[in-house]
Design a protein around this nucleic acid. Structure first.
Length: 585
DNA sequence: GCCGTTTTCGGCCCGACTGTTTTCAGTCG
């Protein structure tokens, strides 16, 4: 059992305890333990013989260590089993619907015996929820909409989840001798926000036709396979326990490029590419680009060879959507897309003053290690009480600490890194901010964010944001739209108003790097560029580790055809950055 | 259930917002 599974089981147990109205502190212990387990770099299953090492992990005590030992050896644990006698596992899925919490799930179960989404939908449509306390027509309508949204999105997996699975599977495949390279293809390689299934392409001496069967057997016997769907000459398909379908193809080196091109897609890109090949008397398939007349192979080994043979510049996977990239590649006008190393600073992160885990200095040193030239410390303000948000007094004191660290590092590292004082203020219902202007005036970076967006009508949310960015101290609009409640389509309609006004005011809009925190999809990013918005790409890091988790965010930027010139924090120095932000009053 | 003790119990991030109330429970972050 791997750490991720252990973490998931502990987290699910916490949810079941919540439904069971258990001790909130006990519940939190399970959640904290789950989080701690997930962050471990060593597999706990290898430590169960040495429970003392488990106790060394913060958040894991005697009881939790026993739980983990039990989980690893039996696959479950007594408390979990006991709760599953009382409740159904499908109830955990109900918790994922917007507006559904443990109390409501418990009530639905006791009053209506509703334990899954289908039954809930039926009950809602029949008006049965109206008979329950605190549930009216509005709640019912919102719930039905939520169910609809949930169903539409749940068949796809988020890119970071998919990437994690891809990495784990790759590591297991890699153990077979004679495997050189494993590349995820499909929408994962193109950087889509979600992927339907996982395509893994594998090559190396072990994948040559005469010997490939042994490697195929190795893949088909991977321990994490839930259901084996198919096993062919060079392809294995299976699903994982979470229902993610994985297709692994083992291909000879000589045709790896053609396969990579073919399986990366998109479908529309490939169709257009094949049309172009035919015009040149060539044919393109998953094995090679070849002449139509005598099947002579023109290119197959690498993608670069194939594009070159079609008189095209190499097209990065993120652009392969048949939305103008072929024309640009033919005319040598493809953009020089932004890369990770172009990002010179990070302007949104938290420390242990609020809900982060590391100190100002630790964050700064991590940024230095990543090669950044400047960062802003933007802890939460008081409205986010659960994060121990800063009130005006504490915020001002925090600035002093940030400046002190900045001064220390300046002398220690000869100005290699600057640490700017900042704050992430919350936008209240009336669009005002929750700290005084006099406090904000002391900050270099003020990020304004809406945090309470439960069941908030989009129009009101939009008005709230529009009002907030009128505050002259706001220099960055943080995660510009709500995450859970607002559907993507709705965002596309309403975000344009926000982007327009932000652009007029010179307020930069933030693109958060981690998908879990990201709100601007590639379409919205393109929209932002169109309206001349300043864009900053941040991590919203709460730990030093998160400070490095920026690659998905970059992929998103690349999908939007953005170049270093489009992104504000590609400025080489803090000074240059600050002059490019909205001027302070 | 964890942790740190003024070491073996008592504390453990809590305010905003919504829908349904008519004083508040539940959800969210």
């Amino acid at each position: 059992m791997d750490n991720i599974t252990i973490a998931r089981l502990l987290d699910e147990t916490a949810s079941l305890l919540e439904i069971d109205a258990g001790d909130p502190f006990r519940i939190r212990s399970y959640r904290r333990a789950a989080e701690a387990v997930e962050q471990q770099t060593t597999q706990l299953s290898t430590l169960v013989a040495e429970p003392k090492q488990l106790l060394a992990i913060a958040g894991i005590g005697k009881g939790m260590a026993a739980n983990i030992v039990e989980l690893v050896s039996t696959g479950t644990m007594p408390l979990r089993e006991e709760l599953l006698q009382k409740y159904k596992p499908t109830m955990l899925e109900l918790l994922r619907l917007p507006g559904m919490g443990p109390k409501t799930v418990a009530l639905l179960w006791s009053a209506l015996s509703v334990s899954d989404i289908d039954a809930l939908e039926t009950a809602a449509k029949e008006g049965k929820l109206l008979e329950l306390p605190r549930m009216g027509q509005k709640f019912t309508d919102k719930l039905l909409k939520g169910i609809e949204d949930y169903r539409r999105n749940s068949s796809r997996f988020r890119i970071d989840d998919a990437r994690e699975h891809a990495d784990r599977i790759s590591a297991l495949i890699q153990t077979f001798p004679g495997i050189d390279e494993i590349t995820p293809a499909g929408s994962l390689r193109r950087g889509r926000e979600t992927v339907g299934d996982l395509d893994l392409l594998v090559t190396g001496p072990a994948c040559e036709p005469n010997v490939v069967s042994a490697a195929v057997e190795h893949v088909a016997a991977l321990p994490l396979i839930d259901k084996l769907l198919a096993k062919g000459q060079n392809k294995v398909s299976f699903t994982l326990r979470n229902n993610l379908q994985v297709d692994v193809r083992l291909l000879p080196r000589a045709s790896y490029g053609a396969a990579l091109q073919y399986f990366t897609g998109s479908k529309m890109h490939n169709v257009a590419l094949r049309q172009r090949a035919i015009k040149r008397g060539l044919t393109l398939n998953e094995y090679a680009l070849a002449r139509l007349d005598d099947n002579t192979i023109v290119a197959a080994r690498t993608e670069e060879d194939i594009y070159r043979a079609l008189d095209l510049d190499y097209i990065p996977p993120e652009l392969r959507e048949n939305s103008g990239e072929l024309e640009a590649a033919a005319n040598h006008t493809l953009p020089q897309l932004i890369t990770l190393t172009d990002i010179r600073g990070d302007l949104h992160m938290h420390t242990d003053a609020t809900d982060g885990r590391n100190t100002i200095r630790e964050m700064a040193e991590a940024a230095l290690a990543r090669g950044l030239s400047y960062i802003a410390i933007t802890d939460h303000s008081k409205n986010l009480a659960m994060t121990n948000g800063l009130d005006d007094t504490r915020a001002l004191a925090h600035i002093q600490r940030i400046r002190a660290v900045d001064a220390e590092l300046q002398s220690e590292h000869k100005g290699k890194i600057r640490v700017l004082p900042g704050i992430e203020v919350d936008i209240l219902a009336d669009g005002s901010l929750d700290l005084a202007d006099e406090t904000l005036a002391q900050m270099d970076i003020v990020v304004a964010s809406v945090h309470s967006h439960f069941a908030q009508p989009i129009e009101e949310m939009t008005q709230r944001v529009l009002r907030a960015i009128e505050n002259p101290y706001v220099r960055i609009l943080g995660h510009p739209t709500g995450r859970k409640v607002l559907g993507r389509e709705a965002i596309a309609v309403h975000i344009e108003q926000i982007l327009k006004r932000a652009s007029e005011l010179g307020v930069a809009v933030e693109h958060n790097a981690a998908p879990a925190r990201s709100d601007l999809n590639d379409l919205n990013l393109r929209l932002a560029k169109q309206h001349g918005c300043k864009i900053v790409v941040n991590t919203d890091a709460h730990t030093t580790a998160e400070l490095a988790q920026i690659s998905y965010g970059i992929t998103q930027l690349r999908r939007a055809w953005l170049t270093p010139a489009d992104i504000l924090n590609t400025c080489p120095t803090a000074k240059a950055l600050l002059t490019n932000l909205r001027p302070r009053p």
